Amino acid sequence: MSNPASLNAAAYDALKARIVRGDLRPGAPLSERALCDELAVSRTPLREALKRLANEGLVEISETRRARVARVSVDEVVNLLAVMAVLEGLSGEQACEKASEADLDELARLQNEMESAYARTDHAAYFALNQQIHLSILRMADNGPLAEYFHNLNARLRHVRERLTPTPERWRQAVDEHAEMLALLRRRDGKRLRTLMEAHLRSKTDAYVAAMLNEGLVSMSRAA
């Protein structure tokens, strides 16, 4: 028989994955009965999973205990991206201090693969490698609280990041910026890398908002 902790974790992981992938859209109701049947768990582990996701900002639970996927406004998206930009910049600065040469060689390999995906206009592969690069830099920073905050915020935006199709000009610029990130890491220039990584994400704000509005994933006003 599975123990309660493993059931809670399984329900949490499965439900979070659906939200992050965009299978469950913002505002979608979360029926306890339906989810219990789909996830093969009882109400207790499901409710624990919902509480945990609510603490992370992915789920909203009303006073009557009805749950739904959290909605987000344009203002909140802009604020989330502003905070993530600061976290990304800090991760780059700290990675400059702590990354090994082996770490940087692995990052160079990912960069080469990402450039190959760009050359063949394989957006899905490019996005996956892009995420690996940023998460690798985060890992090199070796800062637990920073990683925790970053992962929580990233989960709230990943479903739209996967849908975001950059213009040809912006895509080329992003590839070049990643190459510069690697060069700055090799030179251990933390201050310049921090500035670049913050600007790299902030430059995408308008594109994020436009994509989310187009998909109906955000409202113009602050979510109620």
Rank of each mutant, 00 (worst) to 15 (best):
L135I: 00
D142I: 02
L107A: 12
I137K: 02
R188Y: 05
W171D: 03
E169K: 09
T167S: 15
N154F: 14
A117K: 08
R186L: 03
L146E: 03
L104N: 05
E106N: 15
L196R: 04
L146I: 00
G144P: 15
T205K: 05
P168E: 04
A155R: 08
R186S: 06
E115M: 12
E113M: 14
Q111T: 00
A147F: 01
H123E: 05
I133L: 12
L153V: 05
L164M: 05
Q131E: 13
L110Y: 14
A211H: 01
R156E: 04
R187T: 00
G216K: 13
L107R: 12
Q173H: 10
G216V: 04
R163V: 06
G144M: 12
A141Q: 01
H134S: 02
T167A: 12
V209S: 08
T165D: 10
E180P: 01
A102Y: 02
E177R: 11
R156P: 08
A125R: 12
T167Q: 14
H178K: 00
G190R: 07
R156Q: 10
E215V: 08
Q131A: 13
D122Q: 01
E180R: 13
R139H: 12
A117Y: 05
A108W: 00
E215R: 15
P166H: 09
M181I: 04
H159K: 14
L129W: 07
N214H: 10
H134G: 04
R186H: 05
L157D: 03
A211K: 08
T205A: 07
E115Q: 13
Q131H: 11
I137G: 00
M197G: 03
F127Q: 13
H134M: 07
L164H: 01
L217Y: 14
A179G: 15
A207E: 13
Y126K: 12
G144W: 15
R163A: 12
E177F: 08
R194C: 07
Y118W: 08
N152P: 00
R161N: 08
A108L: 04
D206K: 09
E162H: 13
E198V: 06
E180D: 05
L138R: 13
A102L: 05
Q111W: 14
G216N: 11
K191E: 13
A207M: 09
A102W: 00
A210E: 10
Q132C: 09
S203R: 14
R194F: 10
E113A: 15
E169S: 11
L196T: 02
E115C: 12
V218N: 03
I133Q: 06
N154E: 13
I137P: 02
G190S: 03
N130Q: 10
A183M: 06
L213R: 07
A102H: 02
R194N: 06
Y208R: 02
R186M: 07
A199K: 11
L193N: 04
T121H: 15
A108M: 00
D206C: 00
S116W: 01
R172M: 10
G144D: 15
M140Q: 10
Y126V: 10
E169G: 09
L217G: 04
T165P: 06
Y208D: 04
M114K: 06
F127R: 15
A117D: 04
A211D: 01
Y208N: 02
P168T: 05
A128M: 02
V160K: 03
L107S: 09
R188H: 09
E115F: 13
A207H: 08
F150E: 11
R156W: 07
D105N: 13
E169V: 10
M181P: 03
L213V: 06
V209P: 07
A108F: 00
E148L: 12
A102N: 05
H159C: 15
H151P: 06
